[in-house]
């Protein structure tokens, strides 16, 4: 009886597993089909290195460099903030906080992941953008920096929870050995626990990065959306995701513009796939 149940559960999981792979492959093929359609009109090189994104003017120009720069800039800002804070928080939660503090702090951080991104965008528009404007004394608060700031908050729960898992996976016997040698708790964290958890910590950062690059709604709402190469992070800019979201509804189905958005999707897919693949490599290493 029990074996029969096991068998059914096993098969159901197998079907679910296979179908997720099939779905992923179909998404990729779908993107590839429409994306390739586009690359028969505009070369991949012009697409990736062109510095002008004017898909609707005549003649149209399909250079996504400004969008790549926009995505790169918000990611850089977000990670510069979220990585140190996220790792520090994970270390605090995993190694220092009392169990009571942890009981309060951990769900709070996890709650950040439950807030819909449109709400982050809303807070960005009403609170953070004005604050950035007055703090840095700039003409508009809708900048790449503002986007990065909010994305940092959104990436935090991913980084914290995966990093904490990685720290948790370090055998307690390493810690005991270090303390028994007269090392302080802090030395033990720095010289034993962090190095032992390294792979998992890198995975945490990579997955946080994937979260940031793939995010759409928030950046669409707060970065100002000018598809030009920004002079600094305190200027307006636009990401790849925001471009797809903003233009998809307005384009004529089957036009070059329409296909160019699939081209962007393909680039985005390739980037996030590479990030997740790398993260997975490090997660495996941590376990093995």
């Amino acid at each position: 009886m029990k074996n029969y149940k096991d068998w059914i559960i096993e098969k159901i999981l197998l079907v679910l597993g296979i179908s997720s792979i099939v779905v992923l492959a179909m998404i990729f093929l779908f993107l590839l089909k429409d994306g390739l359609q586009f690359f028969s009109v505009v070369s991949l090189k012009d697409f990736l290195t062109g510095d002008t994104w004017l898909p609707t003017s005549k003649p149209a120009s399909f250079g996504i460099l400004p969008l790549l720069v926009g995505s790169f800039a918000v990611t850089l800002v977000a990670l510069t903030i979220a990585v140190p804070f996220g790792l520090a928080l994970a270390i605090y939660l995993g190694e220092i906080a009392s169990s009571r503090t942890k009981e309060i702090l951990k769900p709070t951080v996890e709650l950040l992941a439950a807030i819909p991104s449109v709400v982050y965008g809303f807070i960005g528009i009403t609170v953070i953008a004005p604050a950035v404007k007055s703090f840095f004394n700039i003409s508009s608060g809708f900048t790449l920096f503002t986007g990065g700031l909010i994305l940092a908050l959104m990436a935090l729960p991913t980084i914290v929870s995966i990093a904490e898992d990685a720290l948790h996976a370090v055998p307690g016997s390493y810690k005991e050995a270090s303390l028994a040698l007269g090392a302080s708790s802090w030395e033990t964290i720095v010289h034993v626990i962090l190095p032992a958890a390294k792979s998992g910590l890198i995975a945490a950062i990579m997955l946080g990065m994937g979260r940031v690059i793939g995010e759409t709604m928030t950046v669409l709402m707060v970065t100002g959306n000018a598809p030009i190469i920004p002079g600094s992070i305190f200027e307006s800019g636009r990401t790849m995701t925001a471009t797809i979201a903003a233009e998809m509804g307005e384009t004529v189905h089957g036009s070059t513009h329409y296909y160019s958005l699939f081209g962007i999707g393909l680039v985005l897919f390739t980037i996030t796939f590479a990030i997740n693949f790398t993260a997975d490599y490090f997660v495996q290493r941590q376990r093995g």
């Binding site: 016997s173 270090s178 007269g182 034993v192 190095p195």
Partner: peptide, 24 residues
Amino acid sequence: GMVFQRPNPFPKSIFENVAYGPRR
């Protein structure tokens, strides 16, 4: 000093294991 029931070397080189205490 203390030696534990299960051997618990650090995931480091042989040299770095022994040098760990003096370094700290």
